[in-house]
């Protein structure tokens, strides 16, 4: 078994095409996951008992089941309920639904990390709960939430590889296609690994520098 660099080089455009699918799927999923996650987190913390309980159940169910299972439900099971989503949409919907739960938790722990005295000070000045959130708590939360959000983004890049299971031609799936046609399993997979790293390492680096700046 040896590394076939010329093969990786030759198949690079094909692999990069898969990487583009990985990247665009990550961006679309992350966008919706962030919006939904912030909303779910807000409802969970401040939406009252009923909404708080519903969102808590959602968060725990999603966090307690594999992301791949959610993808399978959306892609394989929903059609029998009459909901037929195109491959990319199905993948984006399930990954966004999954990461929304993680991001809601990231959001919650960021809000909880703001000292209680901040809310007390806002209340002592006559602010309502909404005003204290909007002007005092959330602006401080958004600074703290960026580094963990960047980490979630890097994790999502890796988790998009699950869509290979529904035959979406992402980076992992295409590297397996190259393997299948050349009977060289190592080189295409290592090539894919390097492309994944080229995407995740800068983001994790950025996250760390944000963290340093925050502290």
């Amino acid at each position: 078994m040896k590394l076939d660099f010329p093969l990786i080089w030759q198949k690079l455009p094909f692999l990069l095409g898969g990487a583009w699918t990985t990247f665009s799927l990550t961006c679309v999923s992350m966008l919706f996951a962030t919006i939904a996650g912030l909303l779910i987190g807000l409802l969970n913390m401040f939406g009252g008992k009923v909404l708080g309980a519903i969102t808590r159940v959602y968060i725990e169910v999603v966090r307690g089941t594999p992301a791949l299972l959610l993808i399978c439900i959306v892609y394989f099971a929903l059609p029998s309920a009459g909901i037929n989503l195109p491959q990319f949409t199905a993948a984006a919907v399930s990954l966004a639904a999954c990461y929304a739960a993680y991001i809601a938790e990231v959001f919650r722990s960021a809000v909880e990390s703001i000292p209680k005295g901040q809310t007390e000070a806002a209340f002592s000045l006559g602010m309502s709960r909404m005003q204290s959130l909007r002007y005092v708590i959330l602006p401080q939360t958004f600074r703290r939430i960026l580094p963990p959000l960047a980490n979630e983004f890097a994790a999502l890049i890796k988790d998009t590889s699950l869509v290979a299971f529904i035959s979406m031609e992402d980076l992992l799936y295409r590297s397996k296609m190259v393997s299948a046609s050349t009977f060289d399993y190592l080189s295409p997979l290592l090539g894919a690994a390097m492309i994944y790293l080229a995407m995740t390492l800068p983001i994790m680096q950025w996250s760390r520098s944000l963290e340093r700046k925050a502290s």
Binding site: S124, L125, Q140
Partner: peptide, 20 residues
């Protein structure tokens, strides 16, 4: 309560100024 708090100022041991 909110009207009451508008009329009563409070200074805390830990300052609780808004850092942002």
């Amino acid at each position: 309560i909110r009207k009451l708090r508008e009329d009563i100022g409070m200074v805390f041991q830990q300052f609780n100024v808004f850092p942002h």
